Amino acid sequence: MDQPTDKKQQILCIGSVLWDVVGRATIAMRAGSDVPGRIERIPGGVALNIAMALGRFGLNPSALTAIGRDPEGEELMAACGRLGVSTEHAYRSDDLPTDQYMAIEGANGLIAAIADAHSLEAAGPRILTPLIEGPLGTREAPFDGLIALDGNLTHALLEEIATDAAFAKADLRVAPASPGKAERLTPFLRHSRAVLYVNLEEAGLLCQRTFETSAEAAEALVARGAKRALVTNGAKPCSDGTANGVITACPPEVLVTRITGAGDTFMAAHMAAELSGMDREAALERALHAAAIYVSGELPA
């Protein structure tokens, strides 16, 4: 992958950093299926997945999150260091356990998943202290770089971020953690600096209607006030909508070997492409290519 020209560019990734426990089978599954497969535990969470992908593009990602001081948390901190993701400013709790996510994937896609991000939610605004009281920024001197924000935060905290002076100069890139949390992004629908990254189902939840295509969804999100919306739809065309119109591109055809983290990889690749100076069309193509490589298993998780 090409790297942006500014390899020192720092991006803050705010949200979930946890352990992913993912079971994968190579055959189609349904509710109640009991099949052979592989189970692995890997560092994950939306914010961390984005940060890891950004690191592969030569950027300098830093995670603002909550990580426990339990053995799982210490192991996760060490893993982040090896992966090139700074956790220097993460909130560490003596009382809250390290969060985790569990998913089951079959040949026919994601079968079920449970995200236990209760510690992140309980930590609340404490994870933002480095942006409000320094050293990353203050309300008087806001951070003016790129921020990737995920929907694992509570609705109340996301509303606070949408209006807090500490975020007044940031380039906000926002994604829901899952369709079940998509409506938490409502405060950013009419935000002057927020770019939304959603899939077709999440777009429908935000607009309270059903869409057939990503282009239709992107157009509707912009009509509802979004500054910009990128809508993915699996292997079908993906769209980037702004007030200047909607552009659409098709993902490359690949054999899908994993799903968890694909949307996060798309988002990170798109951010990195735009930082390197690519226009809308080229950035969209680059992001789709990166996501395709990821789901094919050609890149490490």
Score class of each variant (00 low, 15 high):
Leu110Trp: 07
Ala269Cys: 08
Lys7Asp: 13
Gly263Leu: 09
Ala53Phe: 05
Ile42Ser: 04
Leu120Met: 12
Ala170Arg: 04
Gln100Ala: 06
Ala194Lys: 09
Asp240Leu: 13
Ala53Val: 02
Thr232Lys: 07
Gln9Pro: 02
Ala229Glu: 11
Leu83Ser: 10
Ala107Ser: 14
Ile161Trp: 11
Leu136Cys: 12
Met52Gly: 06
Tyr101Lys: 03
Leu158Asp: 13
Pro125Trp: 01
Asp171Met: 03
Arg184Gly: 05
Ala273Gln: 11
Met77Val: 14
Gly81Cys: 00
Ile42Phe: 00
Lys181Gln: 08
Phe143Glu: 03
Ala79Asp: 04
Gln10Val: 10
Glu201Val: 14
Met102Ile: 08
Pro4Val: 12
Glu133Ala: 15
Tyr294Glu: 03
Phe188Met: 04
Ala156Gln: 15
His289Pro: 00
Pro125Leu: 02
Ile114Arg: 05
Met267Tyr: 01
Leu18Met: 14
Thr257Tyr: 00
Pro61Ile: 04
Glu159Ser: 15
Pro142Ile: 10
Gly44Asp: 09
Gly32Ile: 12
Leu206Ala: 11
Leu110Asp: 03
Pro135Tyr: 04
Met52Val: 15
Leu128Tyr: 15
Ala123Tyr: 15
Gly109Gln: 06
Ser214Pro: 13
Asn60Val: 10
Leu136Trp: 14
Gly180Ser: 05
Ile104Tyr: 00
Ala51Cys: 08
Ala287Asn: 10
Arg184Thr: 03
Met102Thr: 10
Leu189Trp: 07
Leu230Asp: 04
Pro125Ser: 13
Thr257Ala: 10
Ala249Tyr: 03
Ala170Thr: 12
Phe167Thr: 02
Ala283Asp: 13
Leu110Phe: 06
Ile114Leu: 11
Gly225Val: 09
Ala78Asn: 12
Arg258Ile: 01
Met278Ile: 02
Glu253Gly: 00
Lys8Asn: 15
